[in-house]
Amino acid sequence: MAPIQRVVKPTTRKGKKVLLAREPQIIEGPKRAVIFQGRRTSERVRNTLKDLYDLKKPDAKLLARKNDITIFENAAPVEEICRKHETPLFIMGTHSKKRPDNLVVGRMFNCALLDMVELGIDSFEGLRDFAVPKITLGTKPCLIFNGPAWDQTDEYKHLRSIFIDLFHREQVESVRLQGLEHALSFTATPEGKILFRSYKVLLKKSGCRTPRIELEEIGPRLDFTLRRSKLSSEDLLKQACQKPKALKVIKKKNISTDGLGTVHGQIHVGKQNITGIQTRKMKGLKKTIKEKKG
């Protein structure tokens, strides 16, 4: 028989809160990311990691040490790192002769690897190379995906999903209009490159209510090529995309709203009882004494 799992009973109130927060929640907060180096890294990879950390900042953790991990052979150490830091997202930077300037971006589901994509960094210009005013920390960016390639292969679809997951920050109900000041653009070229650009959004006067948009590049400017990838199985992804029953909107029967916003109700009347109904009284239809008795 396998050893019995130990049950940790929290001794303090705070410890209890921490343990409760680690359990699965109906509404999850922003997905945090852990950013770390692999066995060996180049200057370019290190700078990229730092800039990606700056973009993701309040919801990210940048680890300083090197990690001897070959993720495509064995993902268990990365799962352990993500479990330890409570981060469903990870970015790992490596550099080798075979795969120079390498970046692995991936996701976890229930502390186990869901999918990951390996990207090669072809060119890099950092946040500091653009001498322009930057954006405020933690703003929700506008995500723009250019090019028909994003819808063509499974790898691109997964990568798009990973990018959205990584940068969209959090599901929110409302957003301040003046706070929309960051735009991230991901362009998939026909040659198979992925161009990552980051812009500051400038809202200019246009003479009407909606402003004229101007963009100013703030960096980082990255060109990627797609390398290896490990995509999730269909059923695992389906399981991961499950929506909690509590959040599903239950449709109410017989109530509808039309285009003008008027609520219409439909009423179903049951079958009328016409056998026992009182009709016009006539002498001829009167019951005889015999009938009354019987």
Partner: peptide, 29 residues
């Protein structure tokens, strides 16, 4: 174009629920 409201001198726009399905970090409790 979305409906707006004013909260503390800031104009806030109400976003519809998102349609792009992203996986959860942990399973449904």
């Amino acid at each position: 174009d979305l409906p707006t409201e004013q909260i503390d001198e800031a104009i806030v726009v109400k976003l519809p629920p998102s349609t792009f399905v992203l996986p959860r970090g942990k399973p449904v409790p």
